[in-house]
Amino acid sequence: MTTPTEAIDEVVPATRDVVLDLHRRMVRIRRFEESSGKLVETGEIPGFLHLYVGQEAVASGVGAVLTDDDQITSTHRGHGHAIAKGAELRPMFAELYAKTTGYCKGRGGSMHIVDMSRGMLGANAIVGGGIPIAVGAAFASQYRGDGGVAVSFFGDGATNIGAFHESANMAAVWDLPIVFVVENNGYAEFTSQERHMRLVDIAERAASYGMPGVIVDGMDALAVREAALEAVERARRGEGPTLIEAKTYRFFDHQGIKGMRIPYRDPAEVEAWKSRDAIRLIETIGIERGLVSAEEFEGIWAEVEAEINDGIEFARNSPDPDPADILDDVYTV
């Protein structure tokens, strides 16, 4: 059984703007995930969804310190990364609805959201598949000297795949401007971390490649933001990569919002992590420190709700792809 990291939020300073920014990013992710999860259950959206609920602080804390010129690669559980990087909800919903107005014109779906204009280099349905690609984006920035940084998000399970180790080593040996963010939610699909690796702290893997390894409370967006800021600035200065391990938890199952077919997590463990809900945590911090009022937070929820409804409506009313176009974009011509 994994247990949530002890709160360290008191030590992380925050301004009102930072709290509001992180909160809005997380609420957009939370509501997008909950709504789309329900739409899959009702059959309105095809395919299957790997929901990010519970882990919002990680994508949001990192996304908050990146610009549109910085690049990210993501995972099969990628909606949160896209939203945290600034993706719009209309084309995101439209992609889930498999419509031509979606980010991938209905060709990719949930696991392949892309937004090149915001440096979202694509979600990836192969575990670990996006890591070497982020190294390439970092290489492109180094090659051009454009000051850009790449971030690759991946899970604890992905740190067992060869692509992670090859990428970490190459990025380190070439001092590439990249930050590796491992979101340790304790499970590789249904297999717990203690059953898939000997380590407790994945950040220790950084030492093998001669780069800093940092552990951060992945339920505390302020803490994630601070760690990300330091790693990103280090990368921008040309000092090479960092591995950040964010200890976090997914509240839903590996896939979808329904209950588990076979229980593999202790309900007490799930409840313990839910008690450290990242959104409630930042609201508490904001209110206790007198930075943001409860009413203001409620206002953000309401604004996001309107954006969600607008996105769903937009997707519902968008056209389906035409089978006559099935061969479009196999090649660049």
Binding site: V135, A137, F139, A150, S167
Partner: peptide
């Protein structure tokens, strides 16, 4: 800068090329 020996790491060699190509270079 333009001609580089890599570690023995074929996934990273090609993956780096994919990411750099997606960013407009010609690896």
């Amino acid at each position: 800068r333009r001609v580089k020996d890599t570690p023995i790491a074929e996934q990273a060699i090609i993956g780096l090329g994919v990411g750099a190509a997606a960013r407009g270079l010609r690896p």
